[in-house]
């Protein structure tokens, strides 16, 4: 045999030895799961219920569009807001947004600032921090006062649009919050 054939045979034997040696790599090993569980997000929600208008006599007004107010009358709009706060570090603030001045009535009427109250805190102010335990109903109340001091026939047929008033529930950043 010439040297070329001898070399080829030696190489083949070496490769076979390497393939046979592969079995020696299967040493003891074991796998396991992390058992981290699931990460569940909390919740923040604000739902405005049906509001109710009542007049100075305490009588409910079925449809405000059909009701005409006169000097001396005070209309109160009461609306339930359902606040949902879920999360271990969840905190939020509820605030009134927008405003409607009684511009159509001039100085003869006043629209009060909307107040928010709940059974736990009493008044819910703009800086009141709400926690998940505060979830539930917050009552919003706005009054329209047509002054009894109105004279002559001032402000007859006047109108004021109160649709600009709204509410905003806004989460507050946890103390140790990230910056992302």
């Amino acid at each position: 045999m010439n040297k070329m054939v001898k070399g080829a045979i030696a190489t083949g034997v070496g490769v076979i030895l390497l393939a046979g040696g592969g079995g020696t790599l299967a040493t003891w090993n074991q796998a396991n799961t992390a058992s981290m569980g699931s990460v569940v997000a909390g919740d923040l929600n604000l739902a405005a219920g049906a509001g109710v208008w009542t007049n100075a006599a305490g009588t409910a007004i079925p449809k405000i569009a059909d009701y005409k107010v006169v000097p001396g009358d005070t209309l109160t709009y009461t609306q339930p807001l359902t606040v949902t706060l879920t999360g271990n570090l969840m905190t939020a603030k509820l605030a009134v947004t927008g405003a409607s001045a009684a511009s159509g009535f001039g100085d003869n009427a006043v629209v009060s600032a909307t107040t928010l109250t709940n059974s736990k805190n009493g008044k819910v102010l703009a800086d009141t921090v709400l926690v998940p335990a505060d979830s539930g109903v917050v009552t919003a109340s706005t009054t329209f006062t047509f002054k009894k001091s109105t004279t002559s026939t001032d402000a007859t047929k006047a109108t004021v649009d109160l649709s600009g008033i709204g509410y905003k529930l806004e989460q507050q950043a946890p103390v140790s919050s990230n910056n992302q």
Partner: peptide, 26 residues
Amino acid sequence: LTVQGSYALWNKSASTNAGTVQAAEF
């Protein structure tokens, strides 16, 4: 500027739907 983005937390708004108050005729 990057940190500012983190202030956009959850929030939800709702409207009063209070409608319009109208004065009567005398």
